[in-house]
Amino acid sequence: DIIVVALYDYEAIHHEDLSFQKGDQMVVLEESGEWWKARSLATRKEGYIPSNYVARVDS
């Protein structure tokens, strides 16, 4: 799995977006363009995230 960590807070604009806080970790489910589908490890919610707001966690 690709794990990313939030670099900034993000408040969902559309209902399919995923809100998150700086430091939150998410599993990337699908990478396509600038918006990635991800699942929050904390809340288990899924939605689209702006890929420029996150960084990959080296395992």
Score class of each variant (00 low, 15 high):
residue 34 E to M: 14
residue 40 S to P: 03
residue 25 Q to V: 15
residue 27 V to T: 07
residue 14 H to N: 11
residue 19 S to G: 08
residue 7 L to H: 03
residue 41 L to M: 10
residue 28 V to H: 00
residue 5 V to Y: 10
residue 7 L to Y: 03
residue 37 K to P: 05
residue 51 S to M: 11
residue 13 I to A: 10
residue 3 I to P: 03
residue 26 M to Q: 00
residue 58 D to C: 13
residue 5 V to T: 07
residue 49 I to F: 05
residue 13 I to L: 12
residue 48 Y to R: 11
residue 11 E to Q: 13
residue 18 L to Y: 02
residue 21 Q to L: 12
residue 46 E to M: 09
residue 39 R to D: 00
residue 49 I to Y: 00
residue 29 L to K: 04
residue 55 A to G: 07
residue 44 R to L: 15
residue 19 S to A: 09
residue 35 W to F: 10
residue 37 K to I: 09
residue 17 D to C: 14
residue 20 F to G: 01
residue 12 A to E: 03
residue 15 H to A: 15
residue 14 H to Y: 10
residue 34 E to F: 15
residue 31 E to A: 15
residue 4 V to F: 09
residue 19 S to H: 04
residue 56 R to M: 10
residue 43 T to A: 04
residue 50 P to N: 10
residue 43 T to V: 03
residue 27 V to H: 07
residue 51 S to A: 13
residue 26 M to F: 15
residue 29 L to F: 08
residue 51 S to T: 06
residue 38 A to Y: 02
residue 11 E to Y: 11
residue 20 F to T: 00
residue 50 P to F: 07
residue 14 H to W: 10
residue 12 A to P: 07
residue 40 S to E: 06
residue 38 A to Q: 01
residue 1 D to P: 14
residue 13 I to G: 08
residue 30 E to G: 08
residue 22 K to C: 09
residue 42 A to D: 09
residue 37 K to G: 02
residue 1 D to Y: 14
residue 11 E to L: 11
residue 18 L to F: 05
residue 12 A to Q: 05
residue 25 Q to L: 15
residue 42 A to P: 05
residue 27 V to S: 06
residue 11 E to D: 11
residue 36 W to K: 06
residue 57 V to Y: 10
residue 56 R to S: 07
residue 56 R to N: 07
residue 39 R to Y: 11
residue 22 K to G: 03
residue 9 D to N: 10
residue 20 F to A: 01
residue 56 R to L: 11
residue 3 I to K: 05
residue 35 W to P: 07
residue 35 W to Q: 07
residue 27 V to A: 08
residue 47 G to K: 01
residue 3 I to F: 08
residue 15 H to K: 14
residue 7 L to E: 03
residue 13 I to Y: 09
residue 26 M to A: 01
residue 31 E to H: 15
residue 57 V to S: 08
residue 26 M to R: 01
residue 15 H to F: 12
residue 3 I to M: 08
residue 49 I to K: 00
residue 37 K to F: 15
residue 21 Q to C: 14
residue 4 V to C: 09
residue 42 A to E: 11
residue 5 V to D: 01
residue 53 Y to L: 13
residue 25 Q to K: 15
residue 32 S to V: 12
residue 59 S to L: 12
residue 44 R to C: 15
residue 7 L to N: 03
residue 52 N to G: 12
residue 43 T to R: 04
residue 22 K to L: 06
residue 26 M to C: 02
residue 17 D to M: 14
residue 30 E to S: 11
residue 40 S to C: 11
residue 49 I to E: 01
residue 59 S to C: 13
residue 53 Y to I: 06
residue 48 Y to M: 13
residue 58 D to M: 11
residue 8 Y to T: 06
residue 59 S to N: 13
residue 42 A to N: 11
residue 56 R to K: 13
residue 54 V to C: 06
residue 37 K to W: 15
residue 22 K to I: 08
residue 23 G to R: 02
residue 24 D to H: 06
residue 14 H to F: 09
residue 4 V to L: 05
residue 30 E to I: 10
residue 12 A to G: 11
residue 11 E to C: 13
residue 22 K to Y: 05
residue 33 G to I: 04
residue 1 D to V: 14
residue 41 L to I: 11
residue 44 R to Q: 14
residue 31 E to I: 14
residue 23 G to A: 03
residue 3 I to A: 03
residue 8 Y to Q: 10
residue 36 W to Y: 14
residue 48 Y to L: 10
residue 37 K to Y: 15
residue 13 I to C: 14
residue 34 E to V: 12
residue 1 D to K: 12
residue 22 K to N: 04
residue 19 S to V: 03
residue 14 H to T: 10
residue 53 Y to P: 01
residue 46 E to Q: 09
residue 47 G to R: 00
residue 48 Y to S: 05
residue 57 V to G: 05
residue 27 V to R: 07
residue 23 G to S: 03
residue 41 L to T: 07
residue 41 L to S: 05
residue 48 Y to G: 03
residue 9 D to K: 06
residue 47 G to I: 01
residue 18 L to K: 00
residue 45 K to T: 07
residue 13 I to T: 12
residue 37 K to L: 15
residue 39 R to T: 05
residue 45 K to G: 07
residue 1 D to N: 13
residue 14 H to A: 09
residue 15 H to E: 15
residue 34 E to H: 15
residue 24 D to N: 04
residue 32 S to D: 11
residue 2 I to F: 15
residue 34 E to K: 12
residue 43 T to S: 10
residue 19 S to I: 02
residue 38 A to G: 04
residue 59 S to F: 12
residue 34 E to P: 12
residue 58 D to P: 12
residue 24 D to L: 02
residue 57 V to F: 09
residue 6 A to K: 01
residue 43 T to H: 05
residue 53 Y to E: 01
residue 2 I to A: 08
residue 44 R to N: 15
residue 49 I to M: 02
residue 51 S to H: 10
residue 46 E to F: 07
residue 48 Y to A: 04
residue 54 V to L: 04
residue 54 V to R: 00
residue 53 Y to N: 03
residue 26 M to S: 00
residue 23 G to T: 02
residue 34 E to N: 13
residue 16 E to C: 15
residue 22 K to W: 04
residue 57 V to D: 07
residue 17 D to P: 02
residue 42 A to T: 12
residue 57 V to C: 11
residue 7 L to T: 03
residue 33 G to N: 06
residue 18 L to W: 02
residue 2 I to Y: 15
residue 4 V to A: 05
residue 28 V to R: 01
residue 20 F to H: 01
residue 50 P to L: 07
residue 10 Y to M: 03
residue 5 V to W: 06
residue 11 E to M: 12
residue 35 W to T: 07
residue 12 A to N: 04
residue 13 I to W: 09
residue 28 V to I: 14
residue 34 E to Y: 15
